[in-house]
Design a protein around this nucleic acid. Structure first.
Length: 821
RNA sequence: GCCGAAGUGGCGGAACCGGUAGACGCGCCGGACUCAAAAUCCGGUGACCGCAAGGUCGUGUGGGUUCGAGUCCCACCUUCGGCACCA
């Protein structure tokens, strides 16, 4: 018999699929039934070099879902593209490599080849690259629509700067104070930058999490990132000049009477102004300069909270008390108002600062029993606490006091209830070359002028030197930079920053629906028929960044009338990472398995099979080299088995077979496997256990001595059919050898409920909860017969001997438990 | 510190609703085939006691609920992930 030769049969079927264009799924024509349209999408790859095992796992998962759904009658769009702008290609160019465009083109070609070799059911007619002018044309167009709507703006702001990559970073790209790309410690700078007003959407981004079917941990991470806090904004005035108003945000307005000092962030515009003319002027200037030079990490790791007195006081609006104003870097300019009222009795940080600088502590909330904890840093907030030392609010519970004080502030015009979010606006500009140019022209007389739509795309200029210099390398392309102002015609300059690559990937899933549209990013009607994405699959590392940005974009485009849905991804599945030799598989650690080597050695089918056999797909999994061989053995066994059956019994795949004679159990097992695989793939995303079920079926077929040819061909056909989503090449080949035609056009097999039941059923028999034996009875035996049979089991009898049965528990079709006393 | 996930054989994991713990796969041990090896096939494989029948123990730890707990409740331990001076 011929050997299982994956290379040959995989090449053969890939050719057939391509020739028959089975993966090309056109948009529905007007009037066509759209009730069974489905959009399955995996996160697009960043073409940095070659595919890694994480990609293989990700795309195979999506492929299993796609093939499974298609055979269940769904018309599934399954596209692919490349997140092609970004630092990797650019950094390679800086090191003397090829032009980023060339390197990217080559990388894409290599990845595309690998993807085709994997046999994934991708609709290549929808392929896109975010670095293609035909794509970023529309990224720019969308940017301008957001700009017009006031959702993209430019301003001077404290930002995070990566000294290594020489660019600013979004808040989301700073991990523990370090650049997420290169790991360098991030610096604080104040620069004029472009932002998207994602904060306008904070509440909706939070609320709409209720409408999506996402893993709880991702939802939680997004909730925490948005970080909603309820409290109040309270107006303090400078004592020496009441026209100077400084608002603060607090979540504890009930502790307002406990404010014993006041703190401004070093970046606060009033810091220097307040100190001006006092003897503290120089000290404040010094402090501001010193902290500005510190990185985030350095600031946070200071053992003692630092700060200086400004020489000025403010007045507490609730009691008229004068309290000193300090400047300290534990207060962040970016959150709230950049200024706080400090209540050391009820806030650990304020307490620490008070201790370090000898400031008073006054308790204003105490337990109902009156016990006042001396020198306590922080009294926990609970409903059992009441306000003390708080004038007319004394005795109120903490929540009541909160409400009452807010009400009073509002009536006096001194404050108001307010909600603060941790979420900051999305800093989208980058001082780098390989990205989408921001389509804005700076005109000395007209200001910021959008590039007119008919002049889009603003194509990246050719430059010589890609090295970052603290400003965008595009600035060196002087001919490109100098343009006539579209409004007044005068001399003007182009914006030279490029966009964060996360902008590119915030709408790509919409473009797939209408990828060749050259007069709009997409047609609304077409996008609305396919989207939202029914099943999105990707790495959990994007739980915040990409997924938050894409949600923001979708909502903004909805508000602007470009799409008819408010959430981009209906169902999300986040896959776990692959570990190898005790660490995350990654290039930098050098512990990678190259998918090409596996495909070369075992074939694409085995590789696909094993990546999903590793364990639950949403959890991290440990790669085992020998495990791959096991899956290859399984396919070789299936190959041999089917070929033997065809040789011995001929071809033809019966739609059903009787559960009679020697093959009865095998036929039932086939139905059991259909049932199990269908729910494991379709409902549970339990790809590993679905495979196990097919393993079991194949094992039973191998052992089915004396089964009828019909039964054997039915069972073998079922096994082949069920493994098809995982291993489509061998499945199509064996299906054909069994006498079938296009397996991908076959409806998914249906389990016959009658076949899932058995004539007999085996009960576990327990005495006092301990297993003492088993008994097999007719499936329809009444309970008393089951109990009687169970008592007769010799070992059970021995344990019941001389004891009184106090209770008998029967779980139908499972067990009998005798409780004896 | 706060939030979240997870702890099951030598290993990856299964047990979906509280009902026979360890499916499936890897590895290992033994056997068949072979001059030999590879491949393949067959058998065994949680620990301990026992010739066997069988018994005792066993899902991170300690309690609890229940006829019965890997699964539910309480308290802890460990690991991983996220956030982290967010007022």
């Amino acid at each position: 018999m011929e050997r299982y030769d994956p290379a040959r049969i995989e090449a053969r079927w890939q050719e057939i699929w391509q020739a028959e264009r089975i993966n090309e799924v056109p948009n529905p024509a007007p009037g066509e039934d759209v009730s069974k349209l489905m959009y399955v999408l995996e996160m697009l790859p960043y073409p940095s070099g070659e595919l890694h095992m994480g990609h293989v796992k990700n795309y195979t998962m999506g492929d299993v879902v796609t093939l499974f759904r298609r055979r269940n009658g769904w018309r599934v769009m399954h596209p692919m593209g490349y997140d092609a702008f970004g630092l990797n290609a650019e950094n390679a160019a800086i090191k003397g490599g090829e032009h980023p465009a060339i390197a990217t083109r080559d990388n894409i070609a290599a990845i595309r080849k690998q993807m085709k070799r994997m046999g994934w059911s991708i609709d290549w007619t929808r392929e896109l690259s975010t670095a293609d002018p035909g794509y970023y044309h529309w990224t720019q167009w969308l940017f301008l629509r957001l700009f017009e709507a006031g959702l993209a703006y430019r301003r001077q702001a404290p930002v995070k700067w990566c000294p290594n990559d020489q660019t600013v970073l979004a808040n989301e790209q700073v991990i523990d104070g370090h650049c997420e790309r290169c790991g360098a410690e991030v610096e604080a700078r104040s620069l004029e930058q472009w932002f998207f007003k994602i904060t306008d959407y904070a509440q909706r981004l939070l609320d709409d999490l209720a409408d999506v079917h996402w893993p709880e941990r991702v939802v939680t991470m997004q909730r925490n990132w948005i970080g909603r806090s309820e409290g109040a904004e309270v107006l303090f005035r400078a004592e020496h000049d009441p026209s100077v108003e400084i608002p603060v945000f607090t979540t504890r307005p009930d502790t307002l009477f406990g404010a014993t000092f006041f703190v401004l962030a070093p970046e606060h515009p009033l810091a220097a102004a307040l100190a001006a003319g006092t003897e503290q002027e120089e000290a404040v200037a010094d402090y501001v300069r010193r902290t500005a030079a510190l990185s985030e990490v350095e600031r946070a790791s200071e053992k003692e909270k630092t700060g200086v007195f400004t020489g000025r006081n403010v007045v507490n609006p609730v009691n008229g008390e004068s309290i000193p104003v300090w400047v300290a870097d534990y207060v962040l300019m970016e959150y709230g108002t950049g200024a706080i009222m400090a209540v050391p009795a009820h806030d650990e940080r304020d307490f620490e600062f008070a201790q370090a600088h000898g400031l008073p502590v006054r308790q204003v909330v105490a337990p109902r029993d009156g016990a006042v904890a001396e020198d306590e840093a922080y009294v926990a907030h609970s409903d059992d606490e009441v306000l003390v030392n708080s004038g007319r609010f004394d005795g109120m519970s903490s929540p009541d006091g909160k409400a009452a004080i807010i009400e009073w502030l509002e009536s006096e015009g001194l404050g108001a209830g307010r909600i603060a979010f941790r979420l900051r606006d999305w800093l989208l500009s980058r001082q780098r070359y390989w990205g989408c140019p921001i389509p804005i022209i700076h005109c000395p007389s007209c200001g910021m002028v959008p590039v007119p739509d008919d002049q889009l795309p603003v194509v990246l200029p050719e430059i010589e030197d890609f090295a970052p210099k603290g400003r965008s390398p595009l600035a060196a392309a002087t001919e490109w930079v100098h343009v006539a102002c579209p409004r007044c015609g005068g001399d003007a300059e182009r914006e030279t920053d490029t966009m964060d690559t996360f902008v590119d990937s915030s709408w790509y899933f919409m473009r797939y629906a209408d990828p060749r549209n050259d007069h709009a990013p997409f047609d609304k009607a077409i996008v609305d028929t396919w989207l939202p994405v029914d099943q999105y699959i990707g790495g959990v590392e994007h739980a915040i960044l990409h997924l938050m940005y894409a949600r923001f974009f979708t909502k903004a485009l909805y508000d602007l009338g470009y799409v008819g849905f408010t959430e981009p991804f209906e169902n999300l599945f986040t896959q776990g990472m692959i570990h190898y030799l005790g660490a995350k598989m990654s290039k930098s650690k050098g512990n990678i398995i190259n998918p090409d080597d596996l495909v070369e050695r075992y074939g694409a089918d085995t590789t696909r099979l094993y990546t999903l056999f590793l364990g639950p797909p949403d959890q991290d999994a440990e790669w085992q080299d020998t495990g791959v061989a096991g899956q290859h053995r399984f396919l070789a066994r299936l190959w041999r088995l089917v070929n033997e059956i065809v040789e011995a019994h001929g071809t033809g795949i019966p739609a059903a077979a009787d559960a009679t004679g020697a093959g009865a159990e095998m036929v039932r097992k086939a139905h059991w496997a259909i049932d199990k695989v269908t729910s494991d793939i379709g409902e549970r995303f339990s790809f590993n256990t679905a495979q196990s079920a097919v393993h079991e079926l194949v094992g039973v077929i191998q052992d089915a001595d004396g089964a009828e040819p019909e039964q054997l061909r039915f069972a073998a056909g079922t096994a082949v059919s069920l493994i098809h989503p995982y291993a489509p090449h061998i499945a199509c080949e064996l299906w054909e050898r069994l006498g079938g035609e296009r397996l991908w056009e076959e409806p998914w097999p249906q389990a016959d409920p009658a076949m899932l039941a058995h004539d007999t059923v085996t009960y576990a028999v327990q005495v006092n909860g301990k297993l003492r034996g088993e008994v097999t009875v007719a499936a329809d035996a009444p309970e008393d017969e089951v109990v009687a049979a169970a008592r007769e089991v010799p070992n059970v009898q021995a344990h019941l001997d001389g004891a009184t049965i106090r209770k008998t528990i029967v779980v139908p079709a499972r067990l009998v438990n005798f409780v004896v006393g």
